[in-house]
């Protein structure tokens, strides 16, 4: 094979995935815009919205709590060990607080939501698609985006920031437990240091990230579910793709948001 044809083959090999990727970015953006359009136009489906609030928000509390608790505890241990190398053990409360609130709280909650909520949304909607339930919705004069997508995306936008807030608090509490029970911190001073240290934007950024990650998680589940190929294999692929896309987009969005909020 000549060098020229090798280069051409290599370009085609990388070019195709890039094109496919760009096309899906376009389709996801369009899907998002359509969802926003349907969000503000009636009819609305309050019953489905309420169910989504419970399914996405309330039922995610245990997994969010456990994740945050263990992470906060581990963070305290690490910061103590790292800090002791240059006599800075005292910063544990402050660094646990800022680490949880600015980064780990939103990111871990986002990823847990991607695992728990994105996958279940995608599998459910994809199954509805392959069993003609989406077609049935249309023939019953019900718009699938309004009925299936809007309640889930809206519920995620509202509940995931609250979950992040809960995760932040429980994470800090995990650090507090380890700090006071294992590392010999005084309970009152630990809390005092945490409260004094955190600033308005630390907390605001945490909640904004939560809303963004929640929106991404629900939207990816809905998008891949609605575009599922036929058969059980189609459902499996849609579910896998939705979780991967949600996780990657959440991490990318986290970087961009951190950059926007905190870069000097």
């Amino acid at each position: 094979m000549s060098l020229q044809s090798l280069t051409a083959a290599a370009l085609a090999g990388t070019g195709r995935p890039v094109l496919i990727w760009l096309a899906s970015v376009g389709r996801i953006t369009l899907f998002f815009a359509r969802t926003l359009g349907h969000m503000v136009r009636p009819p609305f489906y309050p019953r489905e919205f309420l169910q989504s609030l419970i399914g996405i928000g309330y039922l995610s509390l245990p997994v969010v709590g456990l994740t945050a608790l263990f992470t906060g505890g581990a963070l305290a241990l690490q910061i103590f060990a790292g800090g002791s190398r240059f006599n800075a053990e005292a910063v544990v409360p402050q660094i646990v607080a800022i680490g949880m609130v600015r980064e780990l709280g939103p990111v871990l909650v986002g990823l847990m939501i991607a695992a728990r909520v994105t996958s279940s949304i995608a599998a459910e909607i994809a199954t509805m698609k392959v069993t003609e339930q989406i077609d049935a919705l249309v023939t019953l004069s019900t718009h699938p985006v309004k009925y299936l997508v809007v309640p889930r995306v809206l519920a995620a936008l509202i509940t995931v920031p609250l979950l992040v807030a809960v995760g932040d608090i429980i994470g800090i509490f995990g650090g507090y437990l380890v700090g006071t029970l294992r590392l010999g911190f005084n309970p009152a001073t630990y809390l005092q240091s945490t409260v004094n240290f955190l600033e308005f934007w630390d907390i605001a950024s945490s909640l904004i990230k939560g809303a963004a990650f929640g929106g991404i998680a629900a939207l990816m589940g809905c998008f891949y579910g609605m575009n599922s190929a036929r058969g059980a294999q189609g459902v499996g692929r849609a579910t896998k793709a939705s979780v991967v896309a949600a996780a990657v987009l959440i991490l990318a969005a986290n970087f961009l948001l951190t950059q926007a909020f905190f870069s000097v």
Binding site: M128, T131, E132, Q133, D135, A136, L137
Partner: peptide, 8 residues
């Protein structure tokens, strides 16, 4: 519908 397509 062919498969019923009931909302489960």
């Amino acid at each position: 519908f062919q498969g019923g397509a009931l909302f489960d």
